[in-house]
């Protein structure tokens, strides 16, 4: 077994840099450090890169550079890490746990041996962290669902789940941005826009950000949606 990080050439235009196999804060710290390094000193020919749970993919222009050159640049970067704030920003997401928005809350409570109110408090008080985006635009996978309320994916997906639904599966939580089917448990709905109209900064959070949920009631939810004007 060779050591970490490991480098894999992907097709003619990408390099996958992997730091290990165990998802957690240690892996995130390494991924985020390289993410910050690439932002500060982007190697020539690199078009974009994608931080994920245990690795990071660098996509490049095969006419401008190659796997070996990009790998060399990254090795130098990792040998001399830049000092950056890689702790991420604090973000607050408002959530309404009203039964109409939380069709799976009772099932989660049953599985956890709790009341729905206890599930809500457990979720509301937890600290989440954005580990990766994926699936669809703005789908930010957050870790941090407390052990006590973790449930597996449901055996069948529910169709047409509205955008803004707060869904959980295992240790992960996310706020949907599109109306889509999901097999995750739906426990609330958020009026907080994740896809924003701000062209410079169109996504509410970046990988590495810390997220907390703030509970709101149905009236507040409706008022927020009316303010948004796009709901």
């Amino acid at each position: 077994m060779s050591g970490w990080p490991r480098y894999r050439a992907v097709a003619d235009h990408a390099l996958l840099v992997s730091f290990g196999t165990e998802i957690g804060d240690e892996m995130s710290a390494q991924v985020l450090a390289l993410d910050a390094g690439l932002a500060q000193f982007t190697p020539a020919g690199v078009i974009e890169w994608v931080p994920a749970l245990v690795n990071l993919l660098v996509d490049f222009d095969p006419e401008a550079t190659d796997h070996r050159t990009v790998q060399g640049e990254i090795e130098r970067m990792l040998a001399n890490p830049v000092r950056t704030d890689q702790q991420g920003q604090e973000r607050i997401i408002e959530i309404c746990y009203d039964a109409a928005f939380a069709p799976d809350l009772e099932a989660v409570a049953d599985a956890a041996g709790m009341t729905t109110e206890e599930v809500i408090r457990t979720h509301r008080d937890a600290a989440f962290r954005v580990r990766m985006y994926g699936f669809a635009p703005g789908y930010a996978y957050m870790s941090g669902v407390p052990e006590a309320i973790r449930v597996p994916r449901k055996s069948a997906a529910l169709r047409d789940v509205p955008a803004g639904s707060v869904i959980i599966a295992g240790p992960q939580c996310l706020v949907t941005t599109l109306t889509m089917p999901t097999g995750w448990s739906i426990i609330g709905r958020s009026p907080t826009p994740i896809l924003r109209s701000d062209a410079e900064d169109p996504f509410l959070f970046d990988v590495g950000d810390h997220v907390r949920f703030a509970r709101i009631d149905r009236d507040t939810y409706e008022a927020r949606m009316a303010e948004r004007g796009d709901g």
Binding site: V10, A11, H13, A14, L16, S18, T21, I23, V50, A52, L53, V54, N55, L56, L57, D59, M132, Y133, G134, F135, A136, Y141
Partner: peptide
């Protein structure tokens, strides 16, 4: 662990069936 995917990735689900990801691929 979920990881980045690209246009042209040939992924194989648990049933052993291959899918080539294309222009609107999932990013991870």
């Amino acid at each position: 662990p979920s990881e980045p995917t690209l246009r042209g990735s040939i992924q194989v689900a648990g049933d052993g069936v291959a899918t080539v990801l294309l222009a609107d691929h999932q990013t991870t």
